[in-house]
Design a protein around this nucleic acid. Sequence first.
DNA 1: TATGAATGAGAGTTCATTCAT
DNA 2: AATGAATGAACTCTCATTCAT
Lengths: 223, 223, 223, 223
Amino acid sequence: MTAAEQPRSGAKGPRRAVAARDRTRQPTEVRRRLIIDAAVPLIAERGYTSVGVRDVAAAAGVSVGTVTYHFDSVQEILSEAMVLHIERYYTALSEAAEHATSGAEALRLLIDALFTDDTDRHWRMWFEYWHAGEQGTDAAFTRGQADRYTAWHRQIHALAERGQADGEFSCDDLDGFTARFAALADGLALQRLRQAPPLTTQEARHHLNQFIQRELVPRPPAR
Amino acid sequence: MTAAEQPRSGAKGPRRAVAARDRTRQPTEVRRRLIIDAAVPLIAERGYTSVGVRDVAAAAGVSVGTVTYHFDSVQEILSEAMVLHIERYYTALSEAAEHATSGAEALRLLIDALFTDDTDRHWRMWFEYWHAGEQGTDAAFTRGQADRYTAWHRQIHALAERGQADGEFSCDDLDGFTARFAALADGLALQRLRQAPPLTTQEARHHLNQFIQRELVPRPPAR
Amino acid sequence: MTAAEQPRSGAKGPRRAVAARDRTRQPTEVRRRLIIDAAVPLIAERGYTSVGVRDVAAAAGVSVGTVTYHFDSVQEILSEAMVLHIERYYTALSEAAEHATSGAEALRLLIDALFTDDTDRHWRMWFEYWHAGEQGTDAAFTRGQADRYTAWHRQIHALAERGQADGEFSCDDLDGFTARFAALADGLALQRLRQAPPLTTQEARHHLNQFIQRELVPRPPAR
Amino acid sequence: MTAAEQPRSGAKGPRRAVAARDRTRQPTEVRRRLIIDAAVPLIAERGYTSVGVRDVAAAAGVSVGTVTYHFDSVQEILSEAMVLHIERYYTALSEAAEHATSGAEALRLLIDALFTDDTDRHWRMWFEYWHAGEQGTDAAFTRGQADRYTAWHRQIHALAERGQADGEFSCDDLDGFTARFAALADGLALQRLRQAPPLTTQEARHHLNQFIQRELVPRPPAR
DNA sequence: TATGAATGAGAGTTCATTCAT
DNA sequence: AATGAATGAACTCTCATTCAT
């Protein structure tokens, strides 16, 4: 899934691709997608500021010319790669929550999906995405970020609302809960990625569960 | 407010240090410090990946040669600048908490100091620092980050412990509280810096206060 | 403190310049001039669109980094090189005319200086300069061109006026004469550079002399 | 007026031919001509060094592949486009002169046709053509240029000769007159295209008419 | 005949680092 | 200690050309 390893052997010479290059032709949309897919792990591993067209080209198994033929700039590639990955992640989270039979269970499933052993790269990417918005990027990118943030908040909000509507628990400040939940998740991810020793996924989930227990007061099932 | 820009209107050729005449000699440590101080605002504003030796030199009013004379690499300058700034910030937070007469008040003061109108640059720097650890940086830097994180946690822990010892409130999981508090603070800062509209400082403080109210159960003063 | 030293030792082929490069240091203004001087013949021979930084660097005996250190862009180098050369040429023409004792003689000397065996490169450069103004270049460049054109016309005009004032010849339309003289000179240069067989310098001068004979009616010396 | 621009608003990825659907097949000669015709205005507007295969393809409404299928190189396209345009122009000039009933009138008509409000693009193209011969171009191109120059001179020469044969005026040096006339026309065109303020078409014609008045001494109609 | 994806050499530019002064 | 000219590797991007379809 990650790979994209390029032998890139000792090859000092003309730096040809390994064997006689495939030179397989792909419709633009397909090739674009292949390139973006190849860029995702690079960004997750090295950080978007350290990824260049040559890296992407090598990872995608095409020439630099091919990369620049399909994209207007590196920025475009990196942005699309980050966005693609982020959206994939959120889609996965949504799906996890959809299987629930109640709001409370949905939140629990969401928490379980938020921190597993292979969500680290997602979080890494998420913070790369976050950091990329800091400067230099255009308005569209920034707006996209804000939109994604909003959508994520809305999803949390909806689940909490559903639980409340179903009478599972009560909460006097749904918006506040949402903001705190989202913030806590982000902050725990930071701890997992930076602290030594890192927060375990289990601990991260535990903290979130503790949190909702305190914020969402369980209501006794209607008699 | 910070700027340090070079007017450089119609000028051609290489940029030069602003004041070339006052070639004041400074003891190494003094000069190092002056340079680092000049680098701090640059990083906060542009991000550390966008700050070069020339920028630092210009901001410090010295030549590039002077900068590289005192430092082994750009990395060194940027690392030290970030560390310096972070430590300053935490020192300020500590001092804010020290004026308290009780653990509970100390936590409140800490929260007040965490989000004010001029803590944005500190948070920005904090996330730059955080992001810088992602890759490329050496072990020492990474260790320093972890240490700083630990120290910050210890401080929160100590305040909570103090409150508990004084019987102000009770908490059955001080370590857990600490982790969640730190995470929540980081996550709220992320929201403040990226969301549209941004979280206000007031809201951020409110969320933290709500959080400790729920986590630290107040105990009636001993009769 | 930070280290992060890159060994960088094993460097396979550092690809140093041929011999131990001089690495002679020059004040910016001197180096700029050396580079521009090196660029002039390149432009005259290959045309300004075919001259790149690497060519200029090689011709000037410095590295590309040195070239870009002293100039903001290739455009800047090429523009300055063309301007420098053009101005040198016109200065030479002015000096040639200055030695004359009368307006009529001045015009003859001017014509002699306009077409000699080593004015071809000047004309070539002139047309490069002319062509460079066609598009893409900024307003300052275009204005400079117009100014230079005007100055050249003024010079011709002044000489003709002097001859008329001295009673050497009469001309009822000095401005018209000027425009035609300048145009004829340019047009003859075009023929010299492109026609097969090329117009000889002698022929070019002859045409100009014929022209002034027809335009400037000699007046019998006052009796 | 010419444009041929691609709207290409927010589009990402490679540019495509405008109308991809009407993949009409054309005999080689027809397609070549269509492509060359499309290239002409591009050269006149941007200069031949700024015109690429993609531009030509877009302007011709075909793919890059089609362009390179019909031509061996960009140079070939641009050369042919310039030649085509130049020849068209000279043909128009010839026709203008043909309607005359005498050599003198023919010259006047020629002058009128040389500078009108829509000859600017022709002159621009002419100088592009001229400049293109400077370097890089092959022998055939250079020879073609010389031939065209010669033909143009021959035409002027013929008209002057006719006038002289008809006894309209006398000229003791027809070759010299021809060279000067051609040179003057070129030089005036340069002034029109570069001077600020530009020479008006009226002035340009006036200068040429003045010139022939001085060079071709009118002879009283035979009694 | 026509297409357009693929290529790679080469362009201009940036910039951390070196080092003679 | 301080300077700033010099360096060259590495970057992104352009573009004529190739070629499978």
